[in-house]
Each structure stands twice: as C-alpha cells, then as structure tokens.
C-alpha cells in the first residue's frame, strides 16, 4: 500500500513539475538577438503547402537550414518544396548556406477521419515527431494548420518543458479560415508564441491573435 502511495505521489509530483514547466515555457518569451534561425516548417498537405511556401517566399537567407515536415504519403508537397527551393537557389546563387531537408511523418488526420482514430493517430504521429524535433532542435517552428502540425508543435513544446530547447512556435491560420479557426488552430492558439490570422472577423473573435493583413 505504502509503495502504491509513494508511487502515486511521485507521479503526481512529476505531473505538477511538468505542468509548472509548461506554464513557465508558455509565459517566457525572451527574444534573443541572433544572426540565423534554424527553421522547421510543417507543410502537411495540399493547399497548406502552397500557402506555407508563399509565407516563406520573402524570408531572408538567415532562415537556414530549413527543415520541412510533410505527411509521409504526400509526394506532391515534396515536389512543390523541391521546386520552391531550386527556384530560391537560382535567385540567390551566392547563398552557400546549408539548404533544406524534408522529413516525413505519418498523417495525423485524413480528411473525414473519425474523432477517436484522429486522437490515436495524432498520438502516434507525436511519438514519431519527438525524435525528429529532438534531433533538429529548431529555433522556430512555423505552421499553418495541417493536422500534422499538432504533433510537431507538441513535441517542440516538450523540448521546452524538458529544458532541452525553447522553441519559438509561430502559427499562421490558413487564408481559407475567414470566420472559424481550424481544429489545429483551436488547439494551438493556446500553445504557440504567436498566433497569426489573416481575416478581420477572426481577429475580432480572437483578440490575442496577430493580424497583419492578408499575407498569401
């Protein structure tokens, strides 16, 4: 009995410490001056990838290396990213900085998948995203709403909670969201450092969000 109690106490203590750490991480936003930023961009699928690449179009070469995370079955996104990066290299041949990497993780949610199986496949994807974010240790995670971004952000947040690396998470809600947040947006608005929306009705509904106009 005593053994069970002390185990429960230990588990409870760990949970409290982790919750405190999470609170601390979410409330510590220190901007460190730096010269380059290692970027992890979650591309997900279909239209999300196109939008993401538009967001990246104007980023300077200081955002390097660029790590892209895509859903494992998504060859179209992989090709789009390669084309985008080739184009970028052509525009700036002087840039010899390390280029880009594409990483694949399982899709956390297929369109029209049921809720329960979504939760299970998201957990599975988070499990696989963790070693990836741990290896890459990005300075910045950028995402715009594909299901894949939830497990990636969760694992990036965990790096902060565990004191390994404080990753800045920036979420840009997809341009197709005019009045309602996506499921990813609803979840991640609480866990990201900067939550950007692209239409005034959303800014009005979520006053803490950042509205910079239509970006893509």
């Amino acid at each position: 009995m005593g053994c069970v109690l002390s185990l429960a106490a230990a588990v409870g203590a760990v949970a409290v410490v982790l919750a405190l750490r999470l609170w601390l991480v979410l409330h510590s936003r220190v901007v460190v001056p730096r010269e380059s930023v290692s970027l992890m961009a979650v591309a997900g699928s279909g239209g999300h990838t196109t939008e993401l690449l538009r967001l990246l179009e104007h980023l300077s070469s200081a955002y390097s290396p660029r790590h892209y995370v895509i859903a494992d079955t998504d060859d179209i996104s992989a090709r789009k990213i390669h084309a985008f990066e080739l184009n970028r290299a052509d525009r700036d041949p002087s840039n010899m900085a390390p280029g880009h990497h594409i990483h694949r993780i399982p899709r956390s949610r297929e369109v029209q998948q049921s809720w329960l199986s979504t939760v299970l496949s998201t957990l599975h994807a988070a499990w696989l995203a963790l070693p990836l974010t741990y290896r890459v240790k990005p300075d910045l995670v950028l995402c715009n709403g594909p299901g894949t971004c939830v497990p990636v952000c969760a694992s990036a947040l965990l790096l902060g909670v565990l004191g390994i690396k404080r990753v800045t998470i920036v979420y840009v809600e997809s341009i197709c969201r005019v009045e309602h947040l996506s499921l990813s947006g609803k979840i991640l608005q609480h866990f990201c450092d900067h939550f950007v929306v692209q239409w005034p009705p959303l800014k009005k509904k979520y006053p803490k969000s950042v509205y910079l106009g239509r970006l893509v």
């Binding site: 901007v31 460190v32 001056p33 730096r34 010269e35 930023v37 538009r54 967001l55 179009e57 104007h58 980023l59 300077s60 200081a62 300075d139 910045l140 950028l142 800045t168 920036v170 840009v172 341009i175 450092d193 900067h194 950007v196 950042v210 910079l212 106009g213 239509r214 970006l215 893509v216």
Partner: peptide, 20 residues
C-alpha cells in the same frame, strides 16, 4: 484582386525571432 503581402510576415517574423 490585390496581392497578398508575405513581406509583412517576414518583417514580423524577423522581429519576433530576434534577427538582426
């Protein structure tokens, strides 16, 4: 249709990540 302004996003991002 006026074009989107991704340059506004890069300016915002530079600021929040502390790029010099």
């Amino acid at each position: 249709f006026p074009p989107g302004q991704p340059e506004k996003f890069s300016a915002f991002l530079d600021k929040v990540v502390g790029l010099q």
